[in-house]
């Protein structure tokens, strides 16, 4: 079936079977690499995107059920001029990541958090990201990056 999604501020007509999870539409139909496949059952957070600003596990929610939502992916965080989002800059500044596979999901979860709380405490950051898994052990750098971004965005 064909339906229209609002992705990163643009309407996108996509053709996919109606039960196709958003993840596969984003990656394969729209060529957006930000959301990653990690588990397919919403346990790891690698596929996190924003749906009306709220974190959404794109790996198991059918895309066709999201036509009324504003979807934001990692790619949508950058400014129109291509400038990196404060979170992306902060992740680079803190060198937050090793393999980097989980990082897009971390950045999206952080973007959702900063959307509702401009200056979260460290404990609030850890709680907000607790269901986003990282295997390399970059957790503390990720927390520092989010703190740095919060500071940059607040000033």
């Amino acid at each position: 079936m064909a339906f229209t999604l609002n992705v990163n501020g643009k309407p996108q007509v996509v053709e996919a079977e109606e039960d196709t999870p958003l993840l596969y539409v984003l990656r394969d139909e729209l060529g957006l690499n930000g959301a990653k496949y990690g588990c397919g059952v919403g346990q790891c957070g690698a596929c996190t995107v924003l749906s009306d600003g709220v974190p959404l596990r794109s790996c198991f929610v059918p895309a066709a059920s999201l036509t009324a939502r504003k979807i934001t992916t990692l790619e949508g965080l950058r400014g129109a001029d291509g400038k990196l989002h404060a979170l992306q800059q902060a992740f680079l500044a803190e060198q937050a990541g090793q393999c980097g596979y989980c990082i897009p999901g971390m950045i999206m979860a952080a973007a959702a958090l900063l959307g509702v709380k401009a200056r979260p405490s460290e404990a609030e950051i850890r709680a907000a990201l607790d269901a986003n898994l990282c295997r390399c052990g970059s957790h503390n750098r990720i927390v520092r990056a989010i703190q740095r971004a919060a500071q940059e965005m607040g000033t």
Binding site: L32, G34, R78, L84, Q88, F91, L92, G97, Y101, P104
Partner: peptide, 8 residues
Amino acid sequence: DLPAKITG
């Protein structure tokens, strides 16, 4: 490698 990883 990190810039490419944080921008997708």
